[in-house]
Amino acid sequence: MARSAPVQPPVAPLTDGAVALRLRQVSDLDAIAAASHDPETHRWLNDEPMDGEARRTSIARADEAWRSGRAAPLVIADAVTDKPVGIINLQFESDDVATVAYSVFPENRGQGVAPRAVRLLARWALSDLRLKQVILEANEGNAASIRVAEKCHFRYVGTRSETVEDGSQKSTAVFALEGLGSAVE
């Protein structure tokens, strides 16, 4: 389910001086496509590697996500150079709740990019978009994403288990950040 109305992108990039969250640009597509083939990315995300068709339609699909109220896809960029270093997205479950998903490009991992980006996006979602809750889900084996949730003061709310196509079990840790009183500093 999406929001009942389009989502307006931030007027200016969201930034903390080190990273900036901004709209996707054609110049970002090489980096996004390259990162989409990274084995570590595939270990944790369900997205298929970006092929020629996905690359060709990437900007239009991102624009449609904003217009439809389904999602708010942004690029994580270096705040000084504007070089793309990852992607981040709010996926709306309703008018009040969204799930954050992100991926930091391989060469930029371990530099604090993900917590900075998640803090910026959560602050924007809870204040400007007036969401009541932002959810962060992480595979229980993904220690890095669990640390991001903890660093950003998301509250652990439980574990969800599901059977995947090969018959194995997948356990997902679920975290939530609520309202304007939440600590997203």
Rank of each mutant, 00 (worst) to 15 (best):
M1H: 11
V174Q: 06
G86S: 07
S182R: 04
T159E: 06
V100G: 15
D16Y: 07
E64S: 13
Q111T: 01
V104L: 14
E178V: 05
A12L: 05
G181N: 05
S36R: 08
L45T: 15
K170Y: 10
G179L: 04
E178G: 03
P9M: 03
I135R: 10
A60M: 08
V7I: 10
E53M: 09
S182I: 02
E178P: 02
G179R: 09
I135T: 11
L129E: 11
E93P: 00
L131V: 03
I32C: 14
A117T: 11
L121E: 01
L180K: 06
V19S: 13
P6N: 07
G179C: 04
D78R: 00
E150L: 08
A2V: 09
A144N: 13
E137H: 11
P9A: 03
E162I: 13
A122T: 11
P10N: 07
I146H: 11
A144W: 15
G110T: 08
A20E: 12
V174F: 03
F105N: 10
V26H: 04
L23Q: 07
D51Y: 12
E162R: 15
H42T: 06
E185G: 08
L136K: 08
S171N: 13
A183T: 01
G179I: 05
V157D: 01
A60R: 02
A183F: 05
D78T: 05
G167Q: 07
D96V: 07
N89E: 13
E64M: 06
A79M: 11
V104T: 12
K151R: 04
A54F: 08
A35R: 13
S68C: 04
P73M: 13
R43N: 12
D96T: 09
Q133D: 02
A20T: 12
N139S: 12
L90S: 01
R24T: 02
C152T: 06
A79E: 07
A143G: 13
S27I: 02
V184S: 08
A12K: 02
R160D: 03
